[in-house]
Computed example of a mutant assay.
Amino acid sequence: MREIEDASASLESATEEVTAKNRLVTATVDATGRLTELKFHTDGYRGMAPAELGATLVEVIDRAQRKMSDRVAEAYDAFAPEGVDTAAVMRGEVDVEQTLRSMGVSLDDFR
């Protein structure tokens, strides 16, 4: 349990920053994947078409969120049951109910 608490504590104040390929903006997310900051490095966004600016923002935020998701999955990977892909869990690609059933557990056991 102590190791799980340590992993959680290490992520409590963790952030990930990703800078756009064009160096225009940096997105920062916290351990939950919540956007906490957008930092514009130049005023180049003023001359961008709205669709281009929007695409740049979506791309940089998405990369920051994926980077944090991978970091969280890695922190908890050692504690996951055998056969459970923590990265897939973090991406929402795992049917939790089905995974529990395959381990002989039912959601009803938690109610």
Results as ranks from 00 to 15, higher is better:
residue 12 E to I: 07
residue 75 A to Y: 09
residue 29 V to W: 02
residue 31 A to N: 14
residue 27 A to G: 06
residue 20 A to K: 01
residue 84 V to N: 07
residue 65 Q to W: 07
residue 87 A to Q: 03
residue 62 D to S: 13
residue 69 S to K: 05
residue 47 G to L: 04
residue 84 V to A: 07
residue 17 E to G: 11
residue 79 F to K: 13
residue 34 R to N: 13
residue 34 R to S: 15
residue 98 Q to G: 15
residue 26 T to R: 08
residue 46 R to N: 07
residue 10 S to C: 09
residue 84 V to I: 14
residue 39 K to I: 14
residue 27 A to M: 02
residue 91 R to A: 06
residue 41 H to A: 04
residue 25 V to Q: 01
residue 105 V to H: 03
residue 102 S to R: 08
residue 18 V to N: 03
residue 75 A to P: 03
residue 72 V to A: 05
residue 87 A to C: 11
residue 64 A to D: 01
residue 93 E to N: 03
residue 91 R to D: 12
residue 96 V to A: 08
residue 61 I to L: 01
residue 85 D to Y: 08
residue 22 N to T: 09
residue 51 A to Y: 09
residue 82 E to I: 10
residue 53 L to H: 03
residue 107 L to M: 12
residue 42 T to W: 02
residue 41 H to K: 10
residue 103 M to R: 07
residue 4 I to E: 07
residue 103 M to Y: 05
residue 92 G to M: 02
residue 59 E to Q: 11
residue 79 F to T: 00
residue 35 L to A: 04
residue 107 L to P: 05
residue 2 R to G: 02
residue 31 A to F: 04
residue 8 S to G: 14
residue 91 R to N: 10
residue 61 I to K: 11
residue 96 V to R: 01
residue 60 V to C: 01
residue 49 A to I: 11
residue 75 A to E: 10
residue 8 S to C: 15
residue 16 E to D: 12
residue 90 M to N: 02
residue 66 R to S: 01
residue 55 A to C: 06
residue 96 V to K: 07
residue 48 M to H: 11
residue 69 S to Q: 00
residue 8 S to T: 14
residue 84 V to W: 01
residue 72 V to N: 00
residue 84 V to Q: 11
residue 53 L to T: 02
residue 79 F to R: 06
residue 19 T to H: 08
residue 47 G to P: 09
residue 79 F to S: 04
residue 100 L to A: 09
residue 104 G to H: 04
residue 53 L to G: 00
residue 60 V to D: 03
residue 70 D to A: 14
residue 3 E to R: 12
residue 103 M to N: 03
residue 66 R to C: 04
residue 66 R to N: 07
residue 71 R to N: 02
residue 10 S to L: 08
residue 71 R to Y: 06
residue 66 R to Q: 07
residue 46 R to P: 04
residue 67 K to S: 10
residue 37 E to P: 09
residue 68 M to F: 04
residue 73 A to P: 04
residue 25 V to K: 02
residue 5 E to T: 13
residue 65 Q to A: 11
residue 97 E to C: 12
residue 83 G to W: 05
residue 96 V to S: 04
residue 21 K to Q: 15
residue 68 M to W: 01
residue 33 G to V: 00
residue 87 A to I: 01
residue 50 P to L: 05
residue 99 T to C: 09
residue 4 I to M: 10
residue 96 V to H: 06
residue 95 D to G: 10
residue 94 V to N: 05
residue 9 A to V: 15
residue 93 E to V: 08
residue 2 R to Q: 06
residue 13 S to E: 15
residue 92 G to P: 02
residue 49 A to E: 13
residue 61 I to Q: 02
residue 36 T to I: 13
residue 30 D to P: 08
residue 43 D to P: 02
residue 46 R to E: 12
residue 12 E to W: 14
residue 15 T to F: 05
residue 51 A to K: 09
residue 106 S to V: 07
residue 91 R to L: 12
residue 64 A to K: 06
residue 81 P to E: 09
residue 22 N to M: 11
residue 13 S to R: 15
residue 68 M to H: 06
residue 17 E to M: 07
residue 73 A to C: 14
residue 65 Q to P: 05
residue 96 V to W: 01
residue 62 D to P: 10
residue 79 F to Y: 15
residue 72 V to C: 03
residue 34 R to I: 12
residue 77 D to T: 14
residue 52 E to M: 14
residue 16 E to P: 06
residue 9 A to R: 15
residue 10 S to N: 15
residue 71 R to K: 15
residue 95 D to Q: 09
residue 30 D to N: 14
residue 57 L to M: 05
